[in-house]
Write a protein that binds this DNA or RNA. Structure first.
Lengths: 338, 338
DNA sequence: TTAGCGTGTTGAAACGCTTCGACGATCCGG
DNA sequence: CCGGATCGTCGAAGCGTTTCAACACGCTAA
């Protein structure tokens, strides 16, 4: 492999000049720049990442910690990851992938100066990783909201607002008995903040709109969904509006409702909280509040890069929810028309 | 951050001694080792990855190129990725994630010595990336089979054998008219090798078993699956055995069959080719040929590490398919009992 | 007693880049 | 015509490791 010295020699300049051509940190005259570029081209020169990292203490790599175990929201996770990776490239950075459970990985990549910054997904209320990265010298952005962000940046969908929005939509279309089919019990048990924020928004708006709301945890398996639907229908038979906040269970919930003789879009109104493509690939196009996974990933990178450049303070960004009405909405018993 | 020299000083030894304690490449007496380890502990010393890479020309990072765009087999992809990442950790390596379309990324990570080796997923017959990585100095393992591996290692499920196995199972249980509901047309158009290998095996065994086989491409949307099922039922109404090789379409195929009055497991036998967990999360547990995605990812890492250590030659490894009978199998018209 | 060996440790030379201070040249205003 | 900016380039000092050749030491065998 050619080195920067080889390039300097064949271009007839000093190595520092080559470096400055590459980094643009000092002005270089046009003819010199041209000679250097020709030499680089000719030799097929590529700067050595390690040497660069050593000299500049910048790796141009960010770490992404993602939950890779198969689970509920695999497609959603992939979208986050895709968003992070593509946006990172826009900033000329690559992505080192860590798994959620590899907690020691944080220390490794952080302490070993393998990365310039971190993005962590799927943050729980009392996440053990948060104090670790808070102590690291690299800036970090959390996707999700811990109890105490300790000066770290966070980004997420505003689930509380999403809960309110969903109930408002149902109330406005004439529904008075509303339910949430939510995350699996184990997620709730972990106090994952998005689930709790969603419920808070839901109940909040229910109170404001004079609507009842029943909450049902739901495993994402077919049988889990069936159980949730059956329980709901048994304990709250007047329910006509359902918010489903569980991508994995969604198709099974719809199947079970059909089996139980409920026609979604006619006598049952369902609002899904999920990425748009998931909403569109159900048996009927679902009214949904978009979970802009890829977008959130990109914002996370934007934030982490901002902190890397200037000395931006840490901030928390909650994205406003957007509801799109599709074919799973139906007027409720209190609807004014029809 | 403490450096190796700091450690050496506080332990009262030379830097090289510290280095040898860390790498184990030279014998170190027990007391010296203990002193060094105490110093490391005390200072919280972490070797600088860049410096290490520069001096040793080893980064302890491998690149993984994966298709991140949302598509057919998102959960399957995740399993590959999980397999690669966890196995890499067993070899004390981290994983740098590249997206499929970032072809220039190959040059970047390879030429810049950012990684020691590469793993590439989703290889097509005439993949433009293959010549690129063949020219790289880092060893590479392909998941999938290109037309010409050019001295690269490959690993994949033996789809040809899987096709044979599926037909053999159906023939043995009394089916004489068999069909494949396969990949989306665009996948076939790209000549992705696994689809073609599957068909070859299928036809091969069909000829041997005296069975007819009809092949239907299938988009993974609900409507695509419906179309495929409808076409099949119209053009080959005697079909009683179906092989589904399309994870995304599988649930929709099953739905459509139900809508068309076919009871899977009674008058229709369906064999899925997919990861076990996908097979188990359908409306009924599916008889399936396992696509051991995570396992393949691990094998890929094993192979790439073997090439990194000794000078193993490149090889192609095709994993033998395993069929597990579950509730979607049914006896066919030619069954002896029944 | 000495040559020879193995064990444990060291010093110093890379590894390939960035960046800082300095310097010559060119240009300006006074 | 001179002093001081400004512009473009250079030399050299790091950055924090690994690794090679060498060496000190205590043994054993002759």
């Amino acid at each position: 492999m050619a080195t920067i010295d080889d390039v300097a020699r064949t271009a007839g300049v000093s190595t520092s000049t080559v470096s400055y051509v590459l980094s643009g940190k000092r002005p270089i005259s046009a003819p010199t720049r041209a000679r250097v570029e020709r030499a680089i081209e000719k030799l097929g020169y590529r700067p050595h990442a390690g040497a660069r990292a050593l000299a500049s203490s910048r790796t141009n790599v960010i770490a992404l910690m993602a939950p890779l175990r198969v689970g509920v929201n695999v497609p959603v996770i992939m979208q986050f990851v895709a968003g992070v990776v593509t946006r990172a490239r826009d900033f000329d950075h690559d992505v080192l992938l860590l798994t959620q459970d590899d907690v020691s990985g944080l220390d490794r990549v952080t302490g070993g100066s393998m990365v310039d910054a971190l993005v962590m997904m799927d943050i729980e209320a009392d996440d053990p990783r948060v104090p670790l990265v808070a102590a690291a010298k690299q800036p970090t952005v959390l996707i999700g909201l811990p109890q105490d962000p300790e000066g770290l940046s966070c980004v997420d969908l505003d689930f509380e607002a999403a809960g309110r929005l969903a109930v408002r939509h149902l109330a406005q279309t004439g529904h008075t008995d509303v339910a949430l089919i939510g995350s699996p019990p184990e997620v709730l048990r972990r106090h994952t903040s998005y689930a709790e924020r969603m419920m808070r928004g839901l109940r909040d708006q229910a109170r404001g709109s004079g609507v009842t709301v029943k909450v049902e945890a739901c495993d994402s398996s077919p049988s889990g969904a069936a159980t949730a639907v059956d329980t709901l229908l048994a304990t709250a038979p007047d329910t006509t509006g359902i918010v489903v906040h569980n991508e994995g269970a969604l198709p099974h919930v719809l199947s079970r409702l059909a089996e139980r003789g409920r026609v979604v879009g006619r006598d049952m109104s369902v609002v899904a909280v999920c990425p748009t493509d998931v909403a569109l690939s159900q048996r009927i196009p679902m009214t949904s509040i978009d979970l802009p996974a890829e977008g959130i990933g990109k914002v996370a990178v934007d934030m982490v890069m901002a902190r890397l450049e200037g000395e931006q303070p840490s901030e928390t960004r909650l994205l406003a929810p957007v509801l799109t009405e599709r074919e799973s909405s139906a007027p409720g018993p209190a609807a004014e028309d029809g």
